[in-house]
Amino acid sequence: MPKPIRKAVFPVAGLGTRFLPATKAMPKEMLTVVDRPVIQHAVDEARAAGIEHFIFVTGRNKGVIEDHFDNQFELERTLAERGKTKELEQLLAELPGAGQTSFTRQQAPLGLGHAVWCAREIVGDEPFALVLPDMLHFGATACLADMRAAYDKVGGNIISVYEVPEDQANQYGIVGVEPPRDGVYPITRMVEKPKAGTQPSNLAISGRYILQPEIFDLLAKQERGAGGEIQLTDSMIQLAQNDRFYATRFDGEIHDCGSKLGFLMANVSYALSRPDLAGQFRDELKKLLATH
């Protein structure tokens, strides 16, 4: 039986320059999809997978994320005084328990690999999940929960993948795979943004990982790669020489909330899934489209 996955790392140090001026004073992770911040959606997914400890790799001006996952005594008291029991119960139910959140700083923007390495002391010597909050996974079941079920069967390292158009494969981290076994695909190759026509498949890494702690030693030794940053994929390629990597396919919707179009589509999709909003929202969309 493989070691259990108890911790998840959330890299949230990015500047969010594509959303300026909205992100001048507010972290991009706190932009809302319907009525929940992007980072809350990611934490919800991790919690649904049984994650017990949430580790945030932050940067400057990200203190509001820490505040979001803490008690707001004035707000809670006001809700109680006004009889807003439902809203208060929801806030308290979603609040992580004492000691379940940790925050560490990535002082320089040196890439995803560096952000993961910054969490090494908190993760310790155990496997962990890595969740990129910008990539919202919307499906019948939580993506990370499916990955964890696969990990419990086969161990090793698990990467979630999804299909992308072949002519766009050079924009993503791409994996090559063998035919599935026990619902997972053994990975044969990993390439970060392959040159057009050289990609091993059209299966792109979706921003969800389960990794063994040996990745930290490799990240510590790694030189800067593409873009002058420490690339996570480079260290995963090295780790794959001695450890197994598998892929699980996510067949739901994936919205890249790091782009304006992806963020807008996430709001539409999540709103249409809400019983309290879907009907009226759909009608208003039809009216709006008719006038444009």
Rank of each mutant, 00 (worst) to 15 (best):
C118E: 09
A119H: 09
A119S: 15
E121Q: 11
E121G: 01
I122A: 04
P127C: 07
P127E: 13
F128L: 10
F128M: 11
L130G: 10
L132T: 08
P133K: 00
P133N: 03
P133Q: 02
D134T: 05
D134A: 06
H137S: 09
H137Q: 11
A140S: 09
T141I: 09
A142K: 14
L144R: 01
A145L: 11
A145H: 12
D146R: 13
D146P: 03
D146K: 14
M147N: 04
R148E: 00
Y151F: 12
D152W: 01
D152P: 01
V154P: 09
V154I: 12
G156A: 08
G156N: 05
G156L: 07
N157T: 06
N157W: 08
S160G: 12
V161D: 12
Y162K: 03
P165Q: 02
P165G: 01
E166W: 10
E166S: 14
D167T: 07
Q168F: 07
Q168E: 13
Y172Q: 03
Y172K: 10
G173W: 04
I174K: 13
V175Q: 04
V177R: 12
V177T: 15
R181N: 10
R181K: 15
R181Q: 14
G183H: 05
G183E: 03
Y185L: 11
P186C: 08
R189D: 11
R189K: 09
M190I: 14
V191C: 04
E192W: 03
E192C: 07
P194N: 13
K195G: 03
A196Q: 15
G197M: 14
T198L: 13
T198N: 11
Q199C: 08
S201D: 02
S201E: 04
L203F: 12
L203A: 10
L203V: 10
S206W: 14
S206A: 15
G207T: 05
G207S: 10
R208K: 11
Y209A: 06
L211P: 12
Q212P: 04
P213E: 07
P213V: 05
E214N: 11
I215A: 00
I215V: 12
I215K: 07
I215E: 04
D217Q: 14
D217R: 15
D217H: 14
L218E: 00
A220V: 00
K221D: 15
K221M: 06
Q222W: 05
R224F: 05
G225S: 05
A226S: 09
G227V: 08
G228D: 10
E229A: 08
Q231G: 01
T233V: 13
S235V: 10
S235L: 06
Q238R: 15
N242G: 05
D243A: 05
D243Y: 10
